[in-house]
Simulated assay, not measured.
Amino acid sequence: MALVVNVAFLQLQILAGLLIINIFSFSPTSLVASQPALTLDYYSKTCPTVFEVVRKEMECAVLSDPRNAAKIVRLHFHDCFVQGCDGSVLLDDTITLQGEKTATPNVDSLKGFEIIDSIKNKVESDCPGVVSCADILAIAARDSTVLVGGPDWEMYLGRKDSKTASYELANSNLPVPSEGILPIITKFLYQGLSVTDMVALSGSHTIGVARCQNYRARIYGDYAVTADQSTASESYLNDLRASCPAAGGDDDTVAPMDNVTPNLFDNSYYQILLRGEGLLNSDQEMYSSFLGVQTKQLVLQYAHDPLAFFHQFAQSMVAMGNITNAVDGGEVRRSCRFVNT
């Protein structure tokens, strides 16, 4: 109930023109101050090989399929927006626990769990019972980004794995492709993240794909309105519609969110938004919505300055990764899919 009240309040603030990032001191993330701070050298003595192990496993995964990089980055994002970065998204359903994997924003969308399982097994061989699944996921997301050409960032560690999950929060906290700009901004602010963080983190869509179910309304809706009238744009739209029919098509058909360099982490995603060709409504709204005054300026900046985008993306990933679980005392799971018994 508290989430509903806070979200409603945030929306009123935005609509009133009071989009001031620092006013949201009541965000749940403010509760984590009592927890031990994450540190750069957390495993320096207890598991000094963790970075090497994770990097080698991610190198193999990305080499076998570049799309695996996007899968791991998305997993980390979906983890952090529900109870903080606590590995709760990795938990399978059991008789006593309903996980987050079947929540609407996650089902048929999240992939890459077996990659994290493989990394966890390797790390456990070197350092049994030491490294949390939440930390493994955070490191893997950083390495995934770097391996496809993206920026590096300092890795703060010491997260604990949650003993719980929240199907309900997964349904309410996570942005969805059909949403407009105000609800998405609200969800980022609720996590203690800024509008700048939102636009920068959305840049991870420069890699990865979306399902037809999530962009069908867009390509049969206002896509033709926002996109330029070039022959190339019309051809691309026709191709999208051919593979994703308005009715009777396969919802699981996928298309890259960056159709220019889909396997390279760069700033072409923002350039696509400038042309009005964003695949998802939630992406294009950042540039095309009349409510997106601040987001439009950021899209323009990142489209023309890749270094600025890389710098901010790295900073925003650190900020997101620092959201920890303020309620659950946590543990280091032996298996990422199940709590310890």
Score class of each variant (00 low, 15 high):
1 M>I: 06
2 A>Q: 11
5 V>A: 13
7 V>N: 13
9 F>Y: 08
12 L>D: 14
13 Q>D: 09
14 I>Y: 14
14 I>S: 03
17 G>R: 10
17 G>A: 03
18 L>A: 12
18 L>T: 00
19 L>N: 12
22 N>A: 11
24 F>M: 12
24 F>S: 14
28 P>L: 11
32 V>C: 12
38 L>H: 07
40 L>W: 02
46 T>D: 15
46 T>H: 14
47 C>G: 05
51 F>S: 10
51 F>R: 12
51 F>V: 06
56 K>G: 04
61 A>E: 14
67 R>Y: 05
67 R>F: 02
67 R>C: 03
68 N>E: 13
73 V>G: 04
79 D>K: 04
80 C>G: 14
80 C>I: 02
81 F>Y: 13
82 V>P: 04
83 Q>M: 13
83 Q>N: 12
85 C>Y: 04
86 D>F: 06
87 G>M: 01
88 S>P: 08
89 V>E: 15
89 V>H: 10
92 D>T: 01
95 I>P: 01
104 T>A: 14
106 N>W: 10
109 S>F: 12
116 I>G: 01
118 S>P: 03
119 I>D: 01
122 K>Q: 15
122 K>L: 14
124 E>R: 04
124 E>A: 00
125 S>I: 06
126 D>I: 00
127 C>M: 06
135 D>W: 08
135 D>P: 15
136 I>W: 06
136 I>D: 01
137 L>K: 07
143 D>K: 00
146 V>I: 13
148 V>M: 09
149 G>F: 01
149 G>A: 04
151 P>I: 01
152 D>M: 07
153 W>R: 10
155 M>Y: 15
161 D>C: 00
164 T>F: 15
168 E>W: 13
172 S>D: 15
173 N>S: 11
174 L>G: 02
174 L>Y: 04
176 V>Y: 05
180 G>S: 08
181 I>K: 04
183 P>M: 00
184 I>Y: 02
186 T>N: 14
190 Y>I: 05
190 Y>T: 05
190 Y>V: 05
190 Y>Q: 09
191 Q>Y: 06
192 G>V: 02
193 L>N: 05
193 L>R: 07
194 S>Q: 15
195 V>Y: 12
195 V>E: 15
198 M>Q: 15
201 L>D: 04
205 H>D: 12
212 C>K: 07
216 R>K: 05
218 R>E: 08
219 I>S: 03
223 Y>L: 13
223 Y>T: 01
224 A>V: 08
230 S>M: 09
231 T>P: 01
236 Y>D: 06
240 L>Q: 04
242 A>S: 08
243 S>W: 08
245 P>Q: 06
252 D>S: 03
254 V>L: 11
258 D>A: 09
263 N>T: 08
264 L>T: 11
265 F>A: 11
266 D>Y: 04
269 Y>R: 07
269 Y>M: 08
270 Y>T: 09
277 E>Q: 14
279 L>S: 01
299 V>K: 09
300 L>G: 12
301 Q>Y: 06
303 A>R: 05
306 P>W: 12
306 P>K: 09
306 P>G: 06
307 L>I: 03
309 F>Q: 07
314 A>S: 11
315 Q>H: 09
316 S>P: 10
317 M>Y: 09
318 V>H: 08
323 I>R: 15
326 A>E: 09
330 G>E: 05
330 G>R: 08
335 S>P: 00
335 S>A: 01
336 C>M: 05
339 V>R: 07
